[in-house]
């Protein structure tokens, strides 16, 4: 239909009622960088990497409903510079030590760093003290790497039908907690087959005993550009799996 289209960087794309800019873009094969968004889960709008300019105003592509005739700036040098800055901010906020992280090569945060040509953390690092939770028999929770995207929170509630995770605290002290009396993952009903155990875009939630099964050089973002993530066509991203679910 001609009256249900919007423009992303000048390219006219269709959308259906109820779709966000992100939904429409991904369906049309256009990548808008994102971290806290995953098709199928309710949009969140917190990481701000999908920041776009809509008719000159800043907006999150993952939460703003598409509307007819919208002019969306997406892949521009200025916006990618903003996104690089936001990526750097996420790096300095946590303790992200890529060389020793088993998620290296499969990590969306790291891949975005490369995508935006990030060469350093740039800002003074926070070096926060965060708790590691190894209490679960098969899932590891390393909060040092958590970027507070809440994908695990939403996956658990919306897909797994559980309520394992939540965000607690305020500001820079915000942190991921587990919905148990002890606060320990081992006391939760999280199972390895749950989407919440697999959806972490960084290395904060990892399946135990399956680290380094895929050699470096053969991992997801060794084989694919992050710009192929979640895009409906023409490429389907083949994710490396480190474990048997």
């Amino acid at each position: 239909m001609t009256n249900n289209t919007l423009f992303i960087d000048g390219q006219e794309i269709p959308f259906e009622a109820g779709q966000t800019i992100m939904d429409a873009a991904l369906a049309a094969g256009i990548y808008i960088p994102h971290l806290c968004h995953k098709p199928g889960l309710s949009p969140h709008g917190s990481c701000k990497l999908c920041t776009v300019d809509v008719d000159g105003r800043s907006a999150s592509a993952c939460t703003l409903p598409a509307s007819n005739g919208m002019q969306v700036d997406n892949n521009t040098p200025a916006l990618n510079e903003v996104r690089k800055t936001l990526t750097q901010m996420l790096f300095v906020e946590g303790n992200h030590l890529c060389p020793t992280c088993s998620k290296s090569g499969d990590c969306t945060l790291q891949a975005l760093g490369y995508h935006f040509g990030m060469l350093d953390g740039h800002f003074p690092p926070f070096y926060p003290r965060r708790e590691v939770d190894a209490s679960h028999p098969s899932v590891m929770l390393d909060r040092d790497r958590c970027i507070l995207c809440e994908l695990c929170v939403r996956a658990s509630r919306e897909v797994d039908g559980k309520n394992v995770f939540a965000i607690s605290g305020r500001g820079a002290q915000s942190h991921l907690i587990v919905n148990t009396v002890s606060g320990k993952l081992g006391d939760s009903d999280l199972q390895t087959g749950d989407m919440a155990a697999h959806i972490c875009p960084v290395g904060a939630i990892l399946i135990k005993d399956h680290g380094y099964e895929v050699p470096i050089g053969m991992r997801t973002f060794d084989l694919h550009s992050v710009a192929e993530s979640d895009v409906a066509s023409p490429v389907t991203l083949k994710k490396t799996e480190h474990h048997d679910a």
Binding site: L90, E93, G171, S174
Partner: peptide, 21 residues
């Protein structure tokens, strides 16, 4: 502002403590 940021979005959660620094 660094004390009062709710911590939801990256620019404010990380930006307000950075500005303070």
């Amino acid at each position: 502002f660094a004390h009062e940021s709710c911590g939801f979005c990256t620019p404010c959660r990380v930006g307000t403590p950075l500005l303070r620094k």
